[in-house]
Every structure is written in structure tokens, then in C-alpha cells.
């Protein structure tokens, strides 16, 4: 009686593969993002869990090094990309990303968006934002500089570690920041400031790590950095110098791809990113401020006094048109 056995096995096998293919029909939404978003300490895992329970889909994050890696990956893959959504570009990369013509309009009601500036881009949806700021060690510095002007021009200002605009987002942010504050005179300011720069690192991690090890009392970071130390380490030691002449704003955005095979799912995910569920976890996982009014107060670690009064920013088009030239000028002023 071998045949029935074989038959059972066959039927069983067919059934298995049938359920297998049924499984395969659960759509997968692929989201390209930067690695600290999707790492186990970032918001990625929480968002994945929350979204998968409501969408009947798989949410797959692909974590790349940083925003610039994200854009270059998108450009490399072109319309062959497996991404449905791209999450984590910032304002300085928007114009170039849009120029690839790989993106689809978001069609999301942006009335609730609550940035310090009005938002009108129809492809990119902001999901959180932050400000660049100089973080200092409270045990080393009692009276921090009061403005960027003060920091860069005052001969008594403290030594700082900054990042390279050629290889890092905050580094580029500072170039734009100085340009906004000093205009055409930024080069003079940089020349004066150069003697205060302990070193210029490849990325944020090198700079912040060296700062924590005491290599300099001040470092270029984000205004929300002290909130991390307060919230996680219960420490008041690290503070941010709030500047009267403003802080440069970094807005992080999400967009869906025109080539996506799951446009509805992608669209839903965009909306989900603006929902209360996601917005409320961003401050303490991504250490950025929610782009939508959540209706509830920020966690206690985030102080009102650490929200800049004066907000600075260039349009994506301005950044895209001038970035290279401004970096070149910066090199001329600082690299001697």
C-alpha cells in the first residue's frame, strides 16, 4: 500500500505550497531608511510592530548609513528599486531627490503639520524635525556663547569639535547655518572660527564620542541631545547653548516611490507616520521633535527653553543650487 502514502504526501505537499503561496500574498512594504532609525534603539522596531498589526502586511526596513547613503542608493537603483517608501531624507537633500523623478505625490492632508515654517512640498511629507545646536559640558563651561556670532567671532569662545560638510549632515548644516547668519561674510567668520576648531570629524558619532571623552568642551550636535542625557542617563551635565541669532532647522521627510507595486499600502504608511501613535514615540527614540501636534506634551526631558525662538533655514532649491560652492568656499577658509 505504497501508493496512498505517496498520494497523501503529494496532497500534503500541494497543500503546503498552497498555504505557502497564500503567505506570499501578504504584501511586503519595503521602506528604505537610515540605520539609526531602524536600529533596535530607534523608532523602527516599534513602528514595524504597530503598523503590521493594522495593515495585514509585512513592513521591511532597509537601513542605510545615513540620509546621503539613502539618496545615493535611490539614485543607483533608479526605477528598478525595490523600495516602496523612502524615509529619512532631510531638507538639504529634497531638491536632488525630487529631481530623480522617481517619487509620487503624497496626497496627504498637511493641515496638521506643525513645523516652525510652513510646508508646501507635494512629494515629501515631514514626519519630524530638529535643530542643530552646540552641546557643551556643563562641568567645563559656565557661560556658553549666546549666539553663533558670539561663538564664531569671540576670541574667548570655547574650543569645539565639528563635522565635515563633505561627509556628514550636521557638518553641512553648520555651513548653511553660518551662511544664514553671516550671509556673504561667512568666510571671514569661518577664518576667525578656524582656530577654535579642535578637529573636524567624518561623522556625528566620532565628534560626539570625542566630546564625551573630554577632547573638547563643546560639539556640534542637535538641540535635543541634552534631552537624551536627561531622559536615559538622568544627567544634567550636557546642555545646549541656545543662540539668540537662531538655530538651523533640519526637517526629516518621507516620500513614496512612483514605481511602488503597493501604492495604497505606501500611502497608508505615509499617513501612519503622521498619526499620533508614531509621532508620540519619535522624541524619545529618534530624538527629534514631532512634525504634527500630538495633543500631548513632550516628555519631561524636553525643555521648552531648548526650543529655539528664531528658526533658520534655506529652501531645498537654495541648498541644492549652492551646496557645492559653499563647501568649496568653506574649504578655502578653513583648510590652510
Amino acid at each position: 500500500m505504497k501508493t496512498p502514502k505517496l498520494l497523501t504526501a503529494l496532497i500534503y505537499g500541494v497543500c503546503l505550497s498552497a498555504t505557502g503561496s497564500a503567505h506570499a500574498e501578504t504584501p511586503t512594504l519595503t521602506v528604505f531608511t537610515y540605520s539609526s532609525f531602524t536600529s533596535e534603539w530607534g523608532p523602527g522596531p516599534l513602528i514595524k510592530k504597530a503598523y503590521e498589526t493594522r495593515c495585514q502586511c509585512n513592513l521591511k526596513f532597509v537601513g542605510l548609513e545615513d540620509g546621503a547613503a539613502l539618496l545615493s542608493r535611490l539614485k543607483l537603483e533608479g526605477n528598478r528599486t525595490s523600495a516602496d517608501v523612502i524615509l529619512g531624507l532631510d531638507t538639504s537633500l529634497i531638491a536632488e531627490a525630487q529631481a530623480t523623478e522617481l517619487l509620487a505625490p503624497h496626497d496627504v492632508n498637511i493641515a496638521d503639520i506643525n513645523l516652525a515654517v510652513t510646508w508646501s512640498n507635494s512629494y515629501f511629507l515631514p514626519y519630524d524635525f530638529g535643530y542643530f545646536g552646540f552641546v557643551y559640558d556643563g562641568e567645563e563651561i559656565q557661560t556658553p556663547p549666546k549666539s553663533l556670532r558670539d561663538l564664531m567671532l569671540n576670541p574667548d569662545s570655547p574650543p569645539v569639535i565639528i563635522q565635515d560638510p563633505r561627509t556628514s549632515t550636521p557638518g553641512l548644516g553648520l555651513i548653511l547655518w553660518a551662511r544664514k547668519v553671516f550671509g556673504e561674510d561667512d568666510i571671514g567668520a569661518w577664518e576667525t572660527f578656524a582656530s577654535k576648531i579642535v578637529t573636524v570629524t567624518k561623522g556625528w558619532s566620532e565628534a560626539y564620542g570625542l566630546f564625551l571623552k573630554g577632547e573638547a568642551p563643546m560639539v556640534l550636535s542637535y538641540t535635543t541631545s541634552p534631552a537624551y542625557h536627561r531622559h536615559i542617563e538622568n544627567s544634567e551635565r550636557y546642555r545646549v547653548a541656545m543662540f539668540d541669532d537662531g538655530h538651523y532647522q533640519q526637517v526629516e521627510v518621507i516620500a513614496r516611490l512612483a514605481s511602488s507595486k503597493n501604492p495604497t499600502l505606501a500611502q497608508n504608511f505615509l499617513e501612519f507616520m503622521l498619526s499620533n501613535d508614531v509621532q508620540k514615540i519619535l522624541p524619545t527614540t529618534n530624538w527629534m521633535l514631532p512634525a504634527v501636534k500630538t495633543g500631548q506634551a513632550l516628555p519631561e526631558a524636553f525643555k521648552e527653553s531648548e526650543i529655539p525662538k528664531v528658526v533658520l533655514g534655506f529652501t531645498p532649491e537654495e541648498v541644492s543650487a549652492n551646496r557645492k560652492n559653499w563647501i568649496k568656499r568653506w574649504l578655502g577658509a578653513v583648510a590652510k
Binding site: 565635515d164 563633505r166 561627509t167 578656524a194 576648531i197 579642535v198 578637529t199 573636524v200 570629524t201 567624518k202 566620532e206 570625542l210 568653506w330 574649504l331 578653513v334 583648510a335 590652510k336
Partner: peptide
């Protein structure tokens, strides 16, 4: 990265 970080600047 070593050259950039320990080199002290973009020079």
C-alpha cells in the same frame, strides 16, 4: 576617517 578626524581639519 583617521586622517580626517585626527588630522584636525579639512586640510
Amino acid at each position: 576617517a583617521v586622517v580626517l578626524t585626527l588630522g584636525g581639519g579639512p586640510a
